[in-house]
Design a protein around this nucleic acid. Structure first.
Length: 105
DNA sequence: CAACTGACGATAG
DNA sequence: CCTATCGCCAGTT
């Protein structure tokens, strides 16, 4: 359960800087498995709180929060807005401005 | 080992 | 923009 894809995913998420967001596909890709986006989601549920991961910075490829309304959606949105991330009228995040990239390291 | 599950992604219509 | 499907992966049951 260590030194695996899962560990790298968690490590990557920890490296997402404040004020930036990353998509599941990105995390999966940079962790070695471009198609394990689902696994990323599973990991978040599995240990986001336990490992104190900035889970709120993980969104889907559409630039939107995946959580259902009244199921954490508003909570996540508030956390992101507190970090300076903005949402447009469609509740989408502008990748051009807030998407985290490997070059930001 | 088989089936199921999950905050997904890409593609097709 | 929407729904429907399939694919992919790891952890559970």
């Amino acid at each position: 359960m260590n030194d695996s894809f899962s560990e790298r995913v968690k490590d990557f998420i920890k490296k997402i800087p404040k004020g930036k967001v990353a998509t599941y596909g990105q995390i999966a890709t940079y962790s070695g498995n471009p198609r394990a986006s689902r696994q990323v989601a599973w990991i978040l549920h599995s240990s986001s709180n336990k490992d104190n991961l900035p889970w709120q910075r993980v969104i889907n490829s559409k630039g939107k929060i995946s959580l259902p309304h009244m199921g954490g959606y508003e909570h996540q949105k508030e956390l992101l807005e507190k970090e300076g991330i903005e949402f447009d009228e469609n509740d989408k995040i502008d990748f051009k401005r807030f998407l985290f990239s490997i070059n930001d390291f």
